[in-house]
Each structure stands twice: as C-alpha cells, then as structure tokens.
Design a protein around this nucleic acid. Sequence first.
RNA 1: GCCGGGAUAGCUCAACGGUAGAGCACCUGAUUUGUAAUCAGGCGGUUGUCGGUUCAAAUCCGAUUCCCGGCUCCA
Length: 682
Amino acid sequence: MAERKTLDERQQMSEAMRIRHSCAHVLATAILKLWPEAQLAYGPAVEDGYYYDLDLKHRITPDDFPKIEAEMKKITKENLVFEKVTVTREQALRDAETGRLGALTERPEPSRFKLENVRSIPEGEAITYFKSGDFLDLCAGPHVMRTGNVGAFKLTSVASAYYKGDEKNPQLQRIYGVAFKNRTQLDEWLKMQEEAKRRDHRKLGAEMGLYALDAEYVGPGLPLWLPNGTAIIEELETLAKQTEFQAGYVRVKTPHIAREKMYVTSGHLPYYAESMFPPMELRAEGELQARINKVKASFAGKDEAVAKHFAPFLDLLKECKSPEDFPTVLDKVIGGISAEERQLFDNAARTRFIGEMFLAGSEPDRYYLKAMNCPHHHRIFAAEPRSYRNMPLRLAEYGCCYRYEQSGELFGLMRVRALNMNDSHIYCSPEQFAQEFNAVNEMYLKYFKIFGIEKYVMRFSTHSKEGLGKKYVDQADLWVKTEEMVRRVLKESGINYEEVPNEAAFYGPKIDVQVYSVIGREFTLATNQVDFAVPGRFGLVYRDKDNSDKTPLCIHRAPLGTHERFVGFLIEHYAGNFPLWLAPEQVRVLPITQEQIAYCEEIVKELRGQYVRASLEFSNDKLQGRIKRAEEAKAHTMLIVGGRDQAANAVSVRVHGKGDLGSKPRAEVIADILAAIRERRA
RNA sequence: GCCGGGAUAGCUCAACGGUAGAGCACCUGAUUUGUAAUCAGGCGGUUGUCGGUUCAAAUCCGAUUCCCGGCUCCA
C-alpha cells in the first residue's frame, strides 16, 4: 500500500519521484487529447510509478493503452517546459469553474474535482499550477524541468478507485503507469516484474505442492495444507513452542466456536460482526418438549377435553428440528385427524400453538466460529482464581480462527478466511507492562534474525477522539494512558517505529510489524496489541498484594502472525529455496545404479531416524534428468551415490542451487545435516 | 463488497462458428546411467457452471461461481 509521505520525503522528492509525478501530467495530457471532457481528480507518484484518477464516460481498457502511450510519446518528444505558476484563490476558482483547470482549454463543464481541491486548500496557503504546453493542472510539484526528461514509460493497468479512498464515494477510473529516466531502467523494471511473477507465493505454492485452494468443495479463502506445506508449518510451530516455552509461556487449547454471549461480552459483535462468519443457530435439547408441555398446560386450564384429545398429536411436533419445520409437521398432524376434529383443532389449538411457538419467539442458541482467540483465553483466565504471585500469565496457542473477509480481498495465502495464529495473551499488571512489552519486542527481533528479515517497520497505531464510542471503546483516559505507556517502551527500546493515528484495534493501541517481500510487496506480518478494555468486560481480576481484586492488562501478540501469511511471505522471501530446517524436502538420495540402492536405503533410514525429511529416488531416468527434477522440486540437499561413493562409505553432496560439492564421508555429511537443522542455519 | 479483466488436460499454451491439439507431468516397456531433460508407447478434456442465439458454440449473447489487477478492509 502507498505509505503516507513524511514531510521530509516530500521536501526532498527524489528524481525518480519527480519523473513519475511528471509522467502523471503527461498521461493526463494524453487522455485529454483523446477525451477532452475527462474530469481529472488526483495524479500522484507512488511506490514504483504513478496513477491518475479520472471520471470519464468512456471505459478505458488496456486496449486503449497503445493509443494513449502514442500521445504520451508525442508530448515527451515535444519536450515542453513544466512551468510553475502561482495564482490567487479567485483565479484558481475561476479556472476550475470554466473547466480550464486540469484541462487543455476552457470547457463547457466546470472541472469539478479541481474545484473541490481548490476549495480544500487552507486559506492563506499558496496555490500553484504547473503548466506544460496547453495542460494546466493544480499541483504543488515538484516536477522535472521538461516533459522530455521522462525518458521511458509504460501504462501498466487500469482499475477503479473510490474518490478520496472512501467507499461511500463514487468510483473513478485509475490508470497506473511506470516512468523512468531511460529505456534501460524500464527494461530492468520489466525484468523485475518477471522475477516477481516467478517468486509469487501462489505460483511457487502450487509448483512445490505447499497448499491448495479448493473453492468448489472447501470454499474460497480456505487453504488446504498439503504435506510439503504442513512440513513448513510444523517447523514454525516447533520454533514458536520452543521460543515461548523458554520465555515462560504456557500452552492452552481452545475450541473453534463459542456462544454468542462470548462475543457480546468481548465487544466483538458490535465492532467486528461484519468480519465474522454468520452464526450457527441451535435449539437447546429439551426446549421443544418444554414448549409442548407448556401448550398442553395452557389447554388444561381452558379446554381440558380438547387438550386431552390432542395431546398425542401435539407430541408429534417433537419431530420439528427448527422453526421452519413447524408448518410442515403441523400439516402432517392435521392430516391424521378428521374434518370436524380439524375444525376444533384449528379453533382451539392451532392458533394458540402457533402463537406460542412463533410469537412468543424463542431465541435460538447462537454459536460463532471464532475470529480471534482472545475471548477464549480470557475465559481460561477466568476459569481459576488468579493471584499477583503467578502474573504475568502468558497463555499461548496456535489457534485457528475464521474471518469472513470480503470476497475481493482474498489473496492467495496472504489473505484467507481460515487462519492459524501464533497467538498469545499476556495478562499482567500495569507495573509489569513495560518489561513484558519489551520482552515481546525482543522475541520479534529474535525471529527476524532467524529468518533474515532485515527490512521492517513497527507501525504504532493509536486511536482518534472522533472514533471513540464508534470504532473504539469509549474510555478516553485509558486510551491516552496506554498509548503513552507503549510510546515510552518503544522510545526506550530504540526500535524503528512510526506512529499512525486512528488505526488502533477497538480495544487498545496496537503495533503492526510491516515487512517487505523481495518482490516489493508490503505486509502486516505480525501484530502486538494492548487491550485495556476487554479483560474488564469479562470481569477478569487477580488478587493483588493488598488483598484487593484488580483487572489485568492484556497484551495480544503474534510475532509469527498466521501460518498462512507467514508462509506466504517466506515463500517469496526465500523464492521457494528454503533453508534446510524449513525445506519440505530436506534430503533426496539418488543412487546412480541399482547396485547402490541398499546402501542408500540405509542412509535414508539413518536420516529419518533423526527426523530428517529424507527420501530415496530411483527411476528409469538418466542421472542428469533425475537431478534436474530434484532441482526443480527444490529438494534442499541431494546425496548422489555411485559405486565409488559406496566403496568409500561416502556420498556426493549437491545442494539445491549450489551445484556439486563433491564426495564426502557419509558420517560427516549426516552430522552436518543434523547440525544445520538443529541450529536452524540460514 | 465495488470497478475492470479472465477461466480450454494436473501444469504451460494452441484451436477463435464446422470432428478440441501440443509439450511437460502421470502410467507401461526398453535403457542402469557420475551432477539441470534417454527412447518408445499409453492414459487424460461434456472447453468453470447454467441458460440463450445458430443447421452447428470452446468460439457469439446473458446470468452465475471462482480466479486475477486495483479500490475499500485487514494478520
């Protein structure tokens, strides 16, 4: 996602950014030449290109790109000067009203987005245009000197975007493009795009047999972990369990569903309902019989004879499994009695019965698939009396949660509807908070080192006053207090962080860890949140030194995020070439001829005895072909065994991507493999 | 959820109103091989699904599902 530019970045906009932004103007000019009536909105430079949002009756498709690019080419050839013009507010308003702004000439219609933009510029701030040829645009700049400085460009895609990014606003057409100083840089970019496609976790995930999506039978966004992917997941879980064990966490296990009361109490239903799967409705066992008895009793008081007569029929209603069944079953009951009786029944019983069943209304018991583990953990906290002596209490679970993400948001493994979270909730006192929070941050850093994640930002999300009572729990003083607590820890620990207002969780401030995959995708990989609200809603307390009950603070943390997103990230991070400890296929043993099969089987047995994912491969293919296939499968270590190796009790080692490493003593090779796995060597 | 585009064999693609085809993968046989493709044969598709137009539909039209690029939202 495009990040908010800091003031610093804006002031010293790089040449690349100036080229991109200038190219947006070139694009706008070209569009106006083809469709003079186009209403331009915004055209900023972004991460590796630029876009321009516009409203236009004609639907621009990639088929229009060559035409637009040809116009753009003409404009860069003309080498027009980008001329900065400062105007008065009155002048700007006039130009917007005559359609001149964001256009090549005056037009019958006002330039409505530009008009709004002018109006939104604070009083007293300078208003500037940039003019290149006939094109006049409201713009703060900066630009390159001339259109010719945009050396190479390409339109990449067309999409729609909500005006001002608000879902309630109409959608505009957004045309994306890239721009560079010269052709060489554009070619480099194109090459990188190819590389990105190759490393895409969706492509590699399928090729390597890591996961499958089966929308037809399982459902969109519900990944099936194949054996190879599961191997990775289990390594990650082992890492988490070991790390957490050493850090004093205790493991718990909770069900995937909970009753409605859980989420009413937690506050998730009001704040989070849209992201949850709709509930399952159950009727309590015995409830139906109770209702039937009640109906019978109501008869007894009034029409005793009738009640007695119809009692056996009413019992048939027990067949009902849900309210929808009542009419059918009722018809069946009526079918079994005579016409006169039916009249009687209708008058005396049916209406009353239906009234009882439907109008009195029975609230079914609702169960929700959990979208988060915290409420379950809160109930574990509540399950036993707690004392300050055993705080902090760190409950950990790789919990599987379900979130009803909007269909358009699903994205491979990165955005799914079933997710396994590296979750934990730390219950502590305010005095313990800083130390606990710090320890969590340190755990993050420890993990990042193991995975070689070097580029990351901790994004500290805080609340907004306007959101109180809507997006956020309405406890202003606690927000301020907790945020200050977090800010202090972050500052003191010297971690690289940025603060973003109005992005907090509904129950407290949070820190999202933003990482960047090699192919340029940015993700929130992990999250660390403070919850000062929900423990109180559940009435969670611990007995303090002074013999009074206190409500604990809760830290939610998930340094490894979810298996889904983390593995998705790792696939792209390693381009599928996992380090030995993570590689789904760690060792593939290849006998050159049948003569070595027995010897190879021994090696495989020895490795598997040490829990190494090793297997033997002997097929009709030539060795070269088998090596090619092993390389393509990204088997980490290949042990190639011919007669010479066997005679010397050796193996020839070949490591994926590194080629032939030569023949080495078998014991040495196996010892090294075991050490590399144990140390989680990169 | 919204806008736009797409869906042909497990994968990559061809056929673009007239009998669905190739390579790889898979299976069988031969070959027993020293570091990224041995040879031969075979299996495999109601062209995402449903409906329409037509003598005839993978191909044209409509709906729907899913996927892709964005937007919005998020771990």
